[in-house]
Amino acid sequence: MKSELTLPIIGHMKSPYREKFGIPRQPNLVQVESYIEMAEPYNDLLAFEGIEAFSHLWLVWQFHDNKNQQRDKFRPQVRPPRLGGNRKIGVFATRSMYRPAPIGLSVVQLKEVKKIGKSVRVYVMGSDLLDGTPILDIKPYIQYSDAIVEAESGYAQDEPTRKEVIWSEQAEGQKQLALQQQRITIQLINELQQVLSLDPRPAYQDDPERLYKMRFADLDVSFQVQQQQVCIVGLHLAE
């Protein structure tokens, strides 16, 4: 029996998540728009005929930027962030990126499929994919079979608690200036605040004085985290 499987890449995700730090740990926690740029020969509108009848899609994708992935060494246990990063459980009981096959699965909301020149783009909402993520397959979400109302979700039964996002005086001024110059949009600011409300820090870090930095879309953001608040202290357009 073969131990390796080669899969085609049908497209790549284009999203505002330019680095792993800050990406929501599950899909649909943040209503951010992104799109899949389909690769040839899959950039054919005929392949999407009938897809408009479905509100949501399953995306099968590859963890492509996991530099710590050790394909030659199986790690049977990992430390989920949801458990504070202090408790080990079996890798198959998690959605950790450190797994035998670096494949992810996300359900997203379909907005539209659009042809722009020779390009075909699949616009979605709520993805948790890094910019540039290879897409391996797209499948329709089937409500009557995929949505299990009575399902148990173990340690991840409840949605994460969100923190209030506030702006320092300096960051507020930087935001207003960028808005006046039309270099950013209100939608981008709202998306950024949704991301930060989930507290993107590693679970084992809890220093209220530490300054964190994150790239989101074309913004470099600096912030600090208090008990129930995330304070944005700096906002700059990325070079």
Rank of each mutant, 00 (worst) to 15 (best):
L235I: 11
R82Q: 14
L45P: 11
A156N: 02
V113N: 13
L198F: 11
Q227M: 11
E37A: 08
S119R: 08
Q194S: 15
S106L: 00
N68P: 01
S168I: 03
E150T: 03
N66C: 13
F216W: 02
L29M: 12
P24Q: 13
I166W: 13
L235Y: 13
S197P: 09
Q26G: 11
I232F: 14
D199I: 05
E49K: 01
A171N: 06
E4D: 12
P100F: 07
I184W: 12
L211M: 13
P100I: 10
D137Q: 03
R121N: 05
K115L: 09
F216V: 13
R183H: 14
A101Y: 11
R201D: 08
G50A: 10
R162V: 12
M1L: 06
G154N: 09
L105M: 11
S222M: 09
Q226F: 03
E40Q: 02
M214P: 09
A147R: 01
L5G: 04
E239C: 02
Q70V: 11
A53M: 04
A238R: 05
M97E: 13
F216R: 05
Q157V: 01
N68V: 05
S145L: 04
R162H: 14
Q77C: 03
A101F: 10
V30N: 00
L46M: 14
F48Q: 09
K114V: 04
Q170N: 11
R25I: 07
I186P: 04
T161I: 14
G22Q: 02
Q31P: 12
